[in-house]
Amino acid sequence: MNSLFIRVYEILVGGNRYKLLLSGLGVTLQVTVFSAFFGVVLGLLLAVMKLGDKSKGILRIPYIISSAYIDVIRGTPSVVQLLIIYHIVFGGIKNVPPVIIAIIAFAINSSAYVAEIFRGGILAVDIGQTEAGISLGLSKVQTMRYVVVPQALKNAFPALANEFIVLMKETAIVGYIALQDLTKAGDFIISRTYNAFIPLFTVALVYFVIIKFLTKLFNMFEGRLRKSDIR
């Protein structure tokens, strides 16, 4: 047992390698938080577009765009999307920090899933709510904004929290574009120390602890959202 601690110390503290893990964790969190934020904004927009008019000529365009976007993003691997954005979209542009590229790629990827989550959340709000809103003289947009979306968010929150957790783990692929996140840092330590066990389990543990913490946080927040359900 003692010798394990010594090994852990040697591998993680020796050569200040824990700093690699910390800065890697910083990158992971940065990419996750920013892409989740933009993913949610874009996702909400896509959801509203997809719920729009499906019947008539020109009004159908938002629906078609949104549906096609969601189809393409969900139908292709996120690694491939990341590589396309890195090599092709930003291929000719110099000095774009890979973190930005990763955030863009994951925001695009996540938005497609978030859109479907929101769409479900919005559809679950009774049509009577919309009718009540517009019957008061609120515009359709105001009704959406003040009546439907707040309830849709509550409906969608568990699935949204889940998407955030999935997204965080998904960012482990940013090593493909030479970005040193938590996973890549672990990988790097393996190559330096020729020990796979300790770095990999440390990395796994860090993901686990953070996600456990987030889960607690989400549960607390959900409790607050459900305040109005208490009888």
């Binding site: 009774d126 517009i134 019957s135 003289g137 609120l138 707040p150």
Partner: peptide
Amino acid sequence: NALRQKMGMVFQHFNLFPHLTVTENILL
């Protein structure tokens, strides 16, 4: 929208906004 502001409507299933308090419902 202007028409509906001068025509109140009450529904069979109330359709109160569940995420808002009574006062917030009235004042939205």
